[in-house]
Design a protein around this nucleic acid. Structure first.
Length: 886
RNA sequence: GGACAUUUAGCUCAGUUGGUUAGAGCGUUCGAUUCACAUUCGAAAGGUCACAGGUUCAACUCCUGUAAUGUCCACCA
């Protein structure tokens, strides 16, 4: 067979696309084609939002998922990533509306109308969807494209309707009048989780409603006081308790004089502020709760959906922006000597994460999911189901426990559930699943229907209309793990591949998404959505800043791929990262990873090009020399160790073991030794083919590319993961480590004595009990340490004109014809002696300690004794060398 | 206000259930174009493991406290 010529450097750009195509065409991304595999292993891809193109965070997630799925595929599982995208309701509509405004369409909803705006959004979504899918392919992610899904496609919409129906019929979904978060800019509600809190300077005003009013109150939002209906005080507050139950009529300039009832509430802090709270039920969630306990106080909304004061606020205020109204009201208080105090402070205000404006608290009819109500036939609430799945297991079944890595998020999750309030699921936007509820204008019937039946269920009137609102995007993504597998039908996919096995996500969507998936799945399928959750951190730039558009510090994954290759990007994202912790990312990391990929390429290139018969050697060849035994031993441990790390989802750990073995043990040592000893093709090909397998999950392209060059007809992607055999002869490892140490020491001596690398020098070794070892390995030592002559003696005088050291229990003398700086040498040896003696002293103290001997395990004591012996011997030899210097 | 995390070499980070003279990559210094690779090779310097206590024969590792940084949650008028 002719020798194969390979380029000097790995050309990622030139091979990646073709390799991906080959994988895809093989059909093995689809687990149904993995005929030998039995047990499924499924990952639902967190669907990227169709709001734009993928960023580095997505690249990171793809690297994680694909590393895991390729590992599982090679382990013989029916491995599958179900890919998809998310229509991302509010986020997408907000993005498109923004774009339209930039194009000069000031009010997209009014100007274009529902149909036209939806058309524009759909175009935008379709476009970014196709870009996203091509990017995922570029990352090398081995998704089953035959199962591609979209949260807004027909099949997923069917699941959404079915879920809604179930929950509606179970009376878990209800329509209620509540204070919700309202984005004036987006003209829509936001759930509590969609708020981003920012610190804002505010003024705190302390005032009285009227001269005669007995209790002063404080507020940061004076304009809302036009809608106050009560003052709450602590029932044990001696200053105020005599007023509880009394009503005061005050005129603050609103449409009608306000009737303020003094109510008791344990939540009021006597020592904070004035010890009394002005209650504005319509514009504060907390006050609204008080109102629900004391309905008689009434509720007066004074701010409208447009963010302006309403008629209730009175003629002086109606139509004013809240900030203008605030100033006006404060001015009025001042004029009437009602203002007691003005203080500067800061306050956290909630802003809409999508629209960006400060949200207004408004009372409105909205759709909610009741998380506390006991579910029919289940006897537990959704909240309880959400807890159960991560504690005792769903239905108490220990096989249905979701584990979370790292563990600390477990507590955070549970704590979050405790504070969970009913989930507001309706949004006043158009892009999303329309709420499948219909109203009859004649008989007032409200009924569920997933299609337009054309008539009222009850009175048959044709005068019906569908609810205008759409569903929160998380309603559909909560169903993702099972809606993608065919639910509500009981498809073979659903039976085979659900629950899924592994889910990775950033901690920032832990509550949004994980919690909702658990809610939906335990409720609708009576099962868990996935078994293990892996929480990853966020990528930051070199300075620890978040990547963001506004900072302009973003890195485009495609550009990095273009420059360094996909493998380099993937490796740089996974190397040195641990679950749950943020990581910094910058180009030098990719550069390092690219260098490794190239190293692997050149290792292969060397092995392949020096052979007449490049091939795959599957059976471990027999070890002929000490170095062979050593590398095979090392190799077995690297298989075992990296497999262990993979099983713990510790990708970084696995990579470290592989990296060290590949670059240091295999390339720097074994390949160099192979050049000396020769005739090692079998072992080289054997180890090469296996490290290609071990590396494949992380750097699939380069490994597959080399694999194909080795003349394998099959794809590396579906090769079996190597199994380590327990290594037998540990002494070979130790012996070769001695040889390495000796070579290292000689190199060190050369370097310290400034001997040019090209210059050949001679070394005498006084080997003692290492006689046999050193004689046998003399050739290796000679070549790797670049020696003219390497003489091994059992015992001898120190050669003249030489500098010495002790390594691996052997005295080494490097002959230097008359160039020795005796003083410097003495100093160097003296330093080594001092260090060794210090260490010996510590060991002796330890071994002389009765308590240590009594308490420490036997093996530790033996180990310490061995160390002591070695170091005593070392000092003896060093002293010999020192005395012979004079 | 509450909770959690982080703090290890100049930088970015590993460090498995307590037993290593605490590791890697980058960077730095010195040296090398040796026929797989300069996207390389050899050598070296560099750390009171944030601080203070404690538990233990033994602490980077466990406990308590302090400090700095970061994140999340809750928000009060």
């Amino acid at each position: 067979m002719p020798k194969i010529e390979l380029p000097k450097a790995y050309d990622a750009k030139g091979v990646e696309d073709a390799i991906y195509q080959k994988w895809e065409e093989s059909g093995f991304f689809n687990p149904d084609n993995l005929v030998d595999a039995k047990e499924p292993f499924v990952i639902s891809m967190p669907p990227p939002n169709v709001t734009g193109i993928l960023h580095l965070g997505h690249a990171f997630e793809n690297s994680l998922m694909d590393a895991e799925i390729r590992y599982q595929r090679m382990k013989g599982k029916k491995a599958m990533i179900v890919p998809g995208t998310d229509h991302a309701a509010v986020a997408t509509q907000a993005r498109v509306e923004d774009n339209l405004r930039k194009e000069g369409i000031a009010n997209p909803r009014q100007d274009l109308g529902r149909e036209e705006l939806l058309k524009r959004i759909r175009e935008y979504a379709d476009n970014s969807k196709s870009v996203i899918l091509s990017q995922i392919k570029k990352m090398g992610t081995s998704c089953d494209w035959s199962r591609l899904a979209y949260t807004f496609d027909d099949k997923r919409s069917e699941a959404v309707n079915e879920l809604f129906k179930m929950m509606y019929e179970d009376e878990l979904i209800y329509r209620g009048y509540r204070v919700i978060n309202w984005s004036v800019k987006g003209q829509s509600t936001c759930s509590d989780d969609e708020l981003v809190y920012i610190d804002q300077p505010v003024k705190i005003y302390t005032f009285k409603y009227s001269k005669d009013f007995p209790i002063p109150i404080a507020t940061t939002r004076p304009e809302t006081k036009l809608g106050d209906t009560a003052v709450a005080v602590n029932p044990s507050d001696n200053r105020y308790k005599q007023y509880i139950g009394q009503k005061f009529v005050v005129d603050v300039g609103a449409k009608a004089p306000l009737t303020i009832t003094i109510i008791a509430d344990d939540g009021v802090d006597i020592n904070y502020g004035t010890g009394a709270v002005g209650v504005t039920p319509a514009h504060s969630p907390v006050d609204f709760e008080m109102y629900q306990k004391n309905k008689e106080i009434g509720i007066i909304p004074v701010i409208g959906k447009d963010g302006k004061m309403t008629e209730n606020a009175g003629a002086n205020y109606q139509g004013l922006d809240v900030l203008v109204a605030r100033e006006k009201f404060v001015a009025w208080l001042r004029e009437n000597n009602l203002l007691i105090k003005e203080e500067d402070s800061t306050h956290n205000v909630g802003t809409s994460d999508r629209f960006g404006d400060v949200v207004e608290a408004l009372p409105m009819d909205q759709w909610f999911i009741d998380v506390n109500k006991k579910i029919k036939n289940k006897g537990r609430s959704l909240k309880e189901l959400m807890k159960e799945a991560v504690t005792m297991g769903h239905n108490g079944d220990a096989n249905k426990v979701i584990t979370i890595t790292p563990e600390r998020f477990h507590t955070i999750y549970l704590h979050w559930i405790d504070n969970l309030r009913d989930w507001c699921i309706s949004r006043q936007i158009w892009w999303g699943h329309r709420i499948p509820i219909w109203y009859c204008d004649d008989c007032k019937e409200v009924f569920y229907s997933d299609t337009n039946s054309g008539h009222c269920n009850k009175c048959q009137s044709k005068n019906i209309r569908q609810d205008e609102d759409t569903l929160d995007t998380w309603f559909s993504s909560g169903a993702w793990t099972f809606s993608t597998l065919g639910w509500p039908e009981e498809t073979p996919d659903l039976l085979t591949y659900h629950p899924t096995n592994w889910m990775q996500m950033g901690y920032e969507i832990l509550f949004f998404w994980m919690a909702r998936m658990i809610l939906m799945t335990t409720y609708a399928l009576d099962d868990i959505p996935f078994k293990d959750v892996y929480i990853h951190g966020m990528l930051r730039d070199k300075n620890g800043k978040k990547f963001s558009k506004s900072l302009g510090n973003g890195l485009d994954p495609l550009e990095i791929i273009e420059k360094y290759g996909t493998d380099a990007l993937r490796l740089s994202l996974l190397r040195g990262t641990t679950p749950g912790n943020d990581m910094r990312f910058y180009e030098e990391k990719v550069e390092g990873a690219r260098n490794f990929v190239n190293k692997l390429w050149n290792i292969s290139r060397f092995i392949i090009q020096s052979s007449d018969n490049p091939r795959i050697v599957s059976v471990a060849p027999e070890a002929k020399t000490l170095a062979d035994k050593w590398i095979l031993n090392k190799f077995n441990s690297v298989i075992n160790l990296s497999t262990q790390e993979m099983d713990k989802y510790n990708f970084s750990g696995a990579i470290e073991y592989l990296y060290d073995f590949t670059w240091s043990d295999f390339a720097d040592w074994y390949l160099e030794i192979a050049k000396v000893e020769g005739n090692k093709e079998e072992i080289l090909f054997y180890i090469l083919q296996n490290i290609l397998k071990l590396w494949h999950p992380f750097i699939p392209f380069v490994t597959e590319s080399i694999w194909q060059t080795l003349g394998a007809g099959k794809l590396l992607m579906v090769e079996k993961w190597p199994v380590g055999v327990q290594s037998q002869d540990q002494s070979s490892v130790n012996d070769l480590e001695v040889v390495k140490e000796i070579i290292g020491s000689i190199r060190n001596l050369r370097s310290e004595n400034k001997i040019e690398p090209a210059k050949k020098v001679s070394v005498v070794a006084i080997a003692g009990n290492k006689m046999k070892l050193l004689t046998e390995q003399a050739e290796i030592i000679k070549k790797l340490a670049r020696l003219e002559k390497f003489t091994v003696l059992a015992d001898s005088e120190k050669p003249a004109n030489s500098v010495g050291t002790v390594a691996g229990g052997v005295q080494l003398y490097l002959e230097l014809a008359g160039l020795i700086d005796v003083e410097a040498e003495k100093k160097r040896i003296e330093k080594e002696i001092v260090e060794a003696e210090k260490y010996i002293k510590g060991l002796e103290a330890k071994l002389g300690n009765k308590e240590f001997l009594d308490n420490a395990p036997e093996e530790i004591i033996i180990k310490e004794k061995e160390k002591l012996e070695i170091y005593i011997e070392r000092v003896k030899k060093l002293k010999d060398q020192r005395s012979s210097l004079i």
